[in-house]
Design a protein around this nucleic acid. Structure first.
Lengths: 196, 196
DNA sequence: GAACAAATAGACAAAATACGTCTAATCGTC
DNA sequence: GACGATTAGACGTATTTTGTCTATTTGTTC
């Protein structure tokens, strides 16, 4: 059972770059088998269909990324910086690898079609983690949410929404990083106690 | 007749990047029509088949590149430098654009299958231009071929062969440029008069 | 080296996709 | 309104891909 998972993981690690390169439609099971250096028959032993394989790939990417996000949030340092790093990790893990502009749209569409649950679960998990980090910071007096009259969840939602909006409006051109930095500066000023 | 050519050229300019990105096999006529922002029906008005389109694309790339090569060779300066620049132009025009590593092999294979004549014609044209440049340089005493006991054509052939060999052995990793530079230094030393 | 599980090549029918052709409708220009 | 150019869309055919299956090979364990 554990060997199986390992093999599947190897296949998925080989498959994701192929999807990123050609998109879902143009990627064939033969392409993936070749990339994973196994036969097509073996590939079907591990995954019953291309769609199942894609779902598993999406799941793996999300798991890995969320693990990174969790690790980053667990570090020391001020909350805003850690949250900024967490958002970065989230973007780097799930968006940047597929931002070949052309294929990006198709891949995200297919993902929403085949693995919407995985994505929404990860998203709410991210919200949870951000809210928890904010909550802890507030408990330790590092930040003060009273002036802005919002709960940790509210703030976490705002950050996630901004992340999404920024991603969609700027696509992968570049200003995205800049816009996120600005958001973090705003948050920092708004939440730091000892300010008006 | 002239409008037709212009339209065809626009199509080919849109098609080449698509071929470079996906390779010949994975590129569909629909992909090309989309890239050229015309309908599939119109695409078939300009080209009767995918193979014909590819041939035309290959022809266009070769024409443009050879025109660049000719221009570079026509400049002032010492022969060896001009030849080095010409080789660079040739490589940049016909090899670099398709060196997406994965697709490169398939594209070159398909090219040799569908447009071998175009490639070989361009190649002999290149040889001719190099030989002519060497011949002129010799006539003006800029270089001396006597010590190496070779005709301009011999030297041109050697250069072209070296270019090929370098390309094939190093693929598109990087040392290719270095190797070409070395070849040019060798030539320069061997051909310059006033040396042993 | 026999016994066993895992991986493979290769063939296969069914489904999906691409090709190349055609017609009828739309668009822009004169 | 007439004209040529462009288009959407449907079409049959050919090719490719999918997913399944069997027989064979490979590698491991006893």
């Amino acid at each position: 059972m554990e060997k199986q998972d390992h093999k599947s993981a190897l296949i998925l690690d080989a498959a994701l770059p192929v999807f990123a390169r050609y998109g879902f439609q143009k990627t064939t099971m033969a392409d993936i088998a070749r990339a994973a250096e196994i036969s097509r028959a073996s590939l079907y032993l591990a995954f019953n269909s291309k769609e199942e394989l894609f779902r598993a790939g999406s799941a793996r990417a999300h798991e890995q990324t969320m693990s990174d996000v969790e690790a980053v949030l667990g570090r020391t340092g001020n909350v805003v910086d850690r949250i900024a790093a967490a958002i970065s990790a989230f973007q780097e893990g799930l968006i940047a690898p597929f931002s070949k502009s052309e294929n990006a749209k198709e891949l995200f569409d297919i993902n929403m079609q085949l693995a919407a649950d995985i994505t929404t679960t990860a998203r709410s998990r991210l919200l949870d983690l951000l809210a928890k980090a904010l909550s802890n910071a507030q408990a330790q007096g590092e930040i003060d949410l009273k002036p802005i009259e919002a709960s940790p969840i509210d703030v976490a939602s705002l950050i996630a929404a901004a992340m999404d909006g920024i991603k969609h409006s700027f696509s992968a051109d570049g200003p995205s990083v800049e816009a996120l930095r600005l958001l973090m500066r705003v948050l920092s000023l708004a939440l730091t106690p000892g300010r008006r």
